[in-house]
Amino acid sequence: MAESFDPKILYVMCGWCGTGGAETASAYGMYYPENVRIFRVNCTGALSTVHMLRPLLEGADGLVISGCHPGDCHYDDGNFMARRKVALVKTILDSLGLDSDRLWFRYVAHGEARRFVDTAAEFTDHIKSKGPNPLATRSDT
């Protein structure tokens, strides 16, 4: 059964750096796992905390967020705001005894095509080893 598990992964990307990484990857013809769904936001700092929580409660097996490297943010501190929000969501999940390791935050720059592809593959493997998100299939939440 574990072999056939195809995780649903949401990959939220900053419109300036992360998405650029994906574009660079496509220019080089690189491959990333097909179960990763890319969701572009203008800045990861603009991503609401509820948007981080909702996929994990409503069907995704994992959520990964890519912001710009420190100092690279187009809006100065959007990536740091995102980092605070991720820390907040993770702390809440941890303190309620839920799995906060289904949420990742990583810096990926415009030119880092390899890093983007690796992140997608690494996260997919990570979620595969964890198995399906138990919250995603509950009908009583």
């Binding site: 929580l53 409660l57 809440i92 309620l96 299939t137 509950r138 009908s139 939440t141």
Partner: peptide, 19 residues
């Protein structure tokens, strides 16, 4: 999910309020 709690998204509301 083979079923939905009604009203839906109670846990999301509570945890959403937490965040």
């Amino acid at each position: 999910r083979k079923g939905v709690r009604v009203p839906p998204a109670t846990l999301l509301f509570q945890m959403g309020r937490m965040v």
